[in-house]
Design a protein around this nucleic acid. Structure first.
Lengths: 247, 247
DNA sequence: CGAATTCTTGACTAGGTTCAACTCCGGTGG
DNA sequence: CCACCGGAGTTGAACCTAGTCAAGAATTCG
């Protein structure tokens, strides 16, 4: 169990959205987590088509789920922020359909699948809380399908910025419409299904219109949230931040 | 509990992929299902932004999860085939981020969320089997993100045909490379993020190249599976049809 | 200082959209 | 029985968003 409790804060915020599990359940879960470990940028934590025996909790940094296609093209199918399990779905699935890659320098903690199985046997409500987390991932996937299927490039970039700010703020790591994007334009292109060149042009357009400022280090400030959210048709309901009180 | 056991066969094939749950667990689950009921084509089973108290098992027909955008544009974010729970994720989520619509005449059975909660309390392994089903949905979402983000129109249509045939065959409702597509070209366009006009042109190209035959009633025959699968880069691993033996 | 990334810009191209008209078919009602 | 209607599919032409290719600027790092 990690020495410094504060680094778990983002995760505790997430897990208590559902239910919440009792103190006892949360303690039991935290007890099976390893101490924080470093995962440097570019590290492939799990390789496509393999089956991990542990699940990974992201404590800081950004992680992506990456599907690699034949021509070398990549699609990033999910972005994880601190407090997210990056591969909780692998707990029950067989071989994974994607790689998991650290997109920046990260701190992680892991939980053994055998421990998770014992925990969810003993505490069914905790199991549902974990299930809930993977269902939110699914809700995000669905929104992104609508984004990739039916929105133009400007709305896609706007949506990504709105979503990431909302998620990072939700775990207490952003405020005042500023956050650390921490993605290169190439990586953004791989999330949005665009070319890097076009992402660059769209970013400039958003800056020119006064919607965001965005420096080369990935510090983003949303200067006009309402306009950006409307442009992107962003409604955070799908993120399930209101949580859910289980009867 | 439905009188005719055979109509549950597709579902029983699905649920036993994981684990499997014991006979007792499966019987307990089947016991809380309502008898089959009809849902006519076009019926909106769940409306976007509401919270259902039941989950729906699809027995026959095709159902879609539909996200509606502001300009009236739609994106179908998931297709369900017989044996799928169409809204099991709503069991734990709050308000739903999409509507659920019968895309053809359907037969359905439902389970009350309170019953599901009791069952998953009593049988944690059954809970994991249901969780597993929602994780497969997520895996399909991820593949579709890669399809929409990085593949051209011909590959998208090819991929859809390969996936639906594989899924329908898996539950015993298709064989010999023939199946009932049961979607109009407009609906296909809403799945693929294309215009209906372009879907039409792509369909003709696939027919001309001898890869599929495809009549106006939605009867599809895949005439050259290998070529189609290669064109679409379709690898069924993500569907998790091999299942998973829980230790 | 040179090497490597990332970002930026311009010119050209292409895949897919839009709009509009027309066909084919099944169903409906006079 | 036929006229009409509506939905699905089909076709053509014009347009446009985003991709590709290629080169140059800016920054970081060894």
């Amino acid at each position: 169990m990690p020495q410094n409790p504060s680094i778990l804060d983002p995760f505790l915020r997430r897990i208590t959205r559902y239910g919440p599990p009792s103190e006892e359940e949360i303690s039991a879960l935290v007890a099976v987590l390893t101490p924080p470990a470093a995962a440097p940028e570019g590290h492939e934590m799990i390789r496509q088509f393999t089956h991990p025996r542990i699940s990974t909790l992201l404590l800081s940094g950004t992680v992506g789920r990456v599907v690699t296609l034949s021509h070398g093209a990549q699609q990033i199918t999910a972005l994880q922020v601190p407090g997210d399990f990056v591969d909780l779905h692998a707990f029950l699935l067989g071989d994974l359909d994607h790689s998991i890659v650290a997109l920046s320098d990260c701190l992680i903690s892991t939980a053994d699948h055998d421990d998770l199985r014992r925990l969810t046997d003993r505490y069914p409500r905790l199991g549902r809380a974990l299930w809930f987390l993977t269902l939110v991932d699914g809700a995000i996937h669905r929104q992104w399908l609508a984004v990739l299927g039916r929105r133009d490039a400007v709305a896609r970039v706007g949506f990504l910025i709105c979503e990431l700010y909302t998620r990072i703020k939700d775990v207490g790591l952003a405020q005042d419409n500023r956050f650390e994007l921490g993605l290169t334009q190439v990586q953004i292109a791989d999330v949005l299904g665009l070319s890097a060149v076009h992402v660059n042009r769209v970013a400039q357009a958003l800056r020119r219109r006064g919607l965001v400022s965005w420096d080369r280090y990935g510090h983003v400030e949303i200067r006009d949230w309402d306009a950006l959210a409307e442009l992107a048709e962003f409604d955070p309901a799908y993120l399930q931040l209101e949580g859910r009180r289980e009867p």
